[in-house]
Every structure is written in structure tokens, then in C-alpha cells.
Amino acid sequence: MELDDPEEGGSVPPNARLLEWAEAIADGRAVDWGRARREGLEPEGSIAALELVESLIQAHLEAKRRLSSDPSPLPVECWGDLRLLEKIGEGAFGEVYRAFDPALQIEVALKLMRWDEGEARAPKRFEEARRLARVRHPHVVRVYGVAHREGRVGIWMELVRGKTLEEILTSEGPFGAREAASGPISAARSRPSMVLD
């Protein structure tokens, strides 16, 4: 437990009447300022200053009342400059988000590695991103960037809208052998190290 009011330890104690009025306005109780002035015991200007403090409290209450009818939307999370809009996937590696890149002004897919992966695995993740970035193929997403921020490595890439593989398998059944092989083989020809490593 800290000291309740350590600043007051070495200061001149406040005038008792001023403190009494300050307690009243802090509690929201009315103060008879006319009577306080007639008594005229306080330093010049003190009562006017306390009246201003009271007005400030009332002003904040009024602003708060106006806001109370305005519901708060869900907060937006951020990772660096990227704004996370929606979690679209999750796995042992971490999560994938639909995110907004304010520099590129586009929505991207952000793959955020688990934060407990630690510093040691960061170089491996950067290498993964660099390899993927070297692949140019219609069946492979484009990589826009990779960074290590706030303790996590993230790779942001082209956001592909459509069904997931799981959804396609559920709705259309298993692929034939040719169909299953055509995409990956074609992509691997454009950059063999991607699958050979």
C-alpha cells in the first residue's frame, strides 16, 4: 500500500474552510457561496477559484450525460501500424487476422506467430517470409512485409477472399489426384526451394 497522499507531507496544510467546501463540491453537495463570501475569511480569489472548480465538475458531468446515450463500438486492436479487423484463422503457429495496412491503404492477411515463440525463432520466421516473397505465382499469395514488433513476428500478405480448403472439402467432397496436385506442383516449379526445403 502506498502513502495515501504523499504530496501533502511537506506542504502547508490547506485552509480548513476551503477544504470543507472542497469536500462538499467533490461530493456533489451544494455550497452557499454568497455566505462564504460574506464571511470573507479566505485568501482573495479562493472562493471564486473553488466556484470555478465546481463549474468544471458540473461541465464534466454534463458532457458525460450526453455521451451516455452513445454506445461504444467494439475496440480495434493493433499490431504495429496494422489494424486488426477480424481473426480468420488459428493454428499451432499462432493466428491469422484480416487487417488494414494504413500505409498501403488495403486489407491484408496478417499471420501473427505465437508470442511465446521467443526471439530465437524470429530469424526462421523471417526466412520463411523471404522465401514466400520470392514466389511469383497465381496460386501463391503475395507477401507485403515481415516484422518483429511487440514481441511477435508477423507476416502480412495478400488477403484472398473465398472459401477455405476445409469449406470446399466439406461442400464439394475430396479433390481428385490431378486436381489436388496441379496447384502445388505448378507453384513449386516457379520456386522449387519452397517445397524442397
Binding site: D4, D5, E8, P14, N15, L18, L19, A22, E23, I25, A26, D27, P43, E44, G45, S46, A48, A49, L50, E51, L52, V53
Partner: peptide, 23 residues
């Protein structure tokens, strides 16, 4: 907490007097 707030308000009033226009 109540006492701390009250003292803080007195200090605030003193500080406001220092910015002029209340006296």
C-alpha cells in the same frame, strides 16, 4: 480517497488563482 480528492481540489483552486481571472 475522499480526503485526497478534496485536498487536490483545493490545490487545483490555488493553481487556478495563479492562472488569473478568478479574483
Amino acid at each position: 480517497a475522499r480526503m485526497c480528492v478534496a485536498r487536490a481540489l483545493v490545490r487545483l483552486a490555488e493553481s487556478l488563482r495563479g492562472t488569473g481571472g478568478t479574483g
